[in-house]
């Protein structure tokens, strides 16, 4: 491997960019592929994109040039929780165990304390400011949990403008319908609003905060692994 390939790979990792290292097992050639940044089309890039979207670590491709070993370097998974509420406590812990770097946003200082969320980043900024700084990407899940449009909505607006792979919002069907109307008023179309999962979580009959956290996290995991593989053009 050329030293400059390795330097670039490390720089990409540091910058939080998805990069795929393609290694030709016959010639020893190494290439870096950017599955989401470039419009360039090739068999190799397509395979890289599929692997990256499916959250696979590695993949193999045989073509005329030989056998290529693809190693996916995805940026770390993140979860942003809007609302330092009851459900956020178990959800933050479970998500951290599942490999997510968790940030809790809640401008209400009484809720958003380090003591209630040990080991989690807590911010009391308003969601629009906090979200602008966090810059969610396609490896980010966002869950709005406050029930309060003043707090949830600005976060959801930022979420819908981002490439976050999962956007969920707590609330009944009725609450979700009202939220839908507010998002229309914010200028989003049906398709975009459809990205918000609501009622949030897989239907497992969850009642307690911890059970709801299980339902939400299960839906996040499902969404991550289902991804959009089938939507990738050949």
């Amino acid at each position: 491997m050329e030293r400059e390939v390795l330097s670039r790979l490390l720089a990409d990792r540091a910058a939080g960019r998805t990069v795929v290292l393609a290694k030709n097992l016959k010639s020893g050639a190494n290439k870096l592929l950017y599955p989401f940044d470039k419009a360039e089309k090739s068999e190799l890039l397509h395979a890289a994109r599929e692997a990256a979207l499916a959250d696979k670590s590695t993949s193999m491709l045989d073509n005329a040039g030989g056998t290529w070993f693809l190693q996916v370097f995805n940026p770390g998974l993140r979860m942003i929780l809007i609302g330092a509420v009851h459900i956020s406590q178990p959800l933050a812990r479970m998500a951290a165990m599942t490999g997510y770097a968790v940030t809790v946003i809640d401008p209400r200082r009484a809720f958003a304390t380090e003591a209630r969320f040990p080991g989690v980043t807590v911010t009391t900024e308003w969601p629009d400011e906090a979200m602008a700084k966090l810059a969610p990407n396609r490896r980010t899940a966002i869950v709005a949990l406050t029930h309060d449009p003043k707090i949830d909505d600005p976060a959801l607006v930022a979420a819908l403008k981002s490439e976050a792979f999962y956007i969920g919002a707590l609330g009944s069907k009725k609450t979700h319908a009202k939220r839908h109307d507010r998002m229309i008023a914010n200028g989003f179309d049906e398709g975009t609003i459809g990205r918000i999962k609501g009622p949030v979580g897989l239907p497992i009959g969850a009642r307690s905060p911890a059970e709801i956290a299980v339902a939400v996290l299960a839906e996040v995991v499902k969404t991550l692994h289902e991804s959009e593989v089938e939507k990738v053009p050949a």
Binding site: L10, R13, T58, Q71, V72, F73, G76, L77, G99
Partner: peptide, 15 residues
């Protein structure tokens, strides 16, 4: 890539 595997790979490559 699985998070722990990614972290391990980062470490080896950086070294």
């Amino acid at each position: 890539m699985n998070e722990s595997l990614a972290a391990a790979a980062d470490d080896v490559l950086a070294r």
